[in-house]
Amino acid sequence: MSDQDVKKIEVGDGAAIPSPDDKGLVSAWWIALIGTLILVIALPLVQPDPYLKILKFIPDGILITFQVTIMSILLAIVIGLLTGLGRISENRLINLAASLYVEVVRGIPLLVQLFYIYFALGRLVRVPDIVAAVVAMAVCYGAYMGEVIRAGIKSIDFGQTEASLSLGFNRRQTMAYVILPQAWRTILPPVGNEFIALLKDTSLVSILAVSDILRRGREFAAESFNYFETYTMIALIYLLITLILSKLISIMEHRLSHYERR
């Protein structure tokens, strides 16, 4: 029978999502989680000044970090969908534009892009800092997302397209009813990876006057001079968030492959 398994897409950086079969990573995950939890709870108890103060000061930043991450990933998915479709388009011009965008974005460091878009956007329109930050993150991640989506679409057997066309569907309908509904199962896991990578990269927006976790920490440290303690706490918080997220995504991915085999 021709039931090829869903192909996995390899995308570079991003947090490693523990596969349920990878015993090494799974046990490392537990050790890291428990260790982090113990430190996050124990440090403020043992040494309330400054750890408890830090812990009270940062949560506003966590909210901002999540806001920026979620808005950026959503916008990046939209950009990625357009880019991915553009990259497989038969229209030369659209194809070239999409490829050019991917090349340019991949060739410039994120931090430089962030500054660039932030200040370029600032020249054109007055938008809140957080919006500029989101746009900058999304423009960057949209290129990677585009590659993920393109790979997802390409992973679907061309016979599906031919069957759809032969019924009378046009290319757009074929994409909407036949290809994308199958491709998302391949696309979603790497999107989960990108989500975690993006969350970590949002720490860069602290430079743009956006009060995320890192910026809140820097503000605290600048006043209290507790640099070491503050950055310890910040690192632990990021670690806790990404550990939990990677687990959630791994569970989701597992469910998805289950669903595939129902």
Binding site: S2, D3, D157, G159, Q160, E162, A163, S164, S166, G168
Partner: peptide, 20 residues
């Protein structure tokens, strides 16, 4: 062509049923 294809059924060697 899409109108024409509606009047032409096609069966492939590899079935190509929509898997989802």
């Amino acid at each position: 062509i899409n109108q024409v294809r509606m009047e032409l059924g096609m069966v492939f060697q590899s079935f190509n049923l929509f898997r989802h």
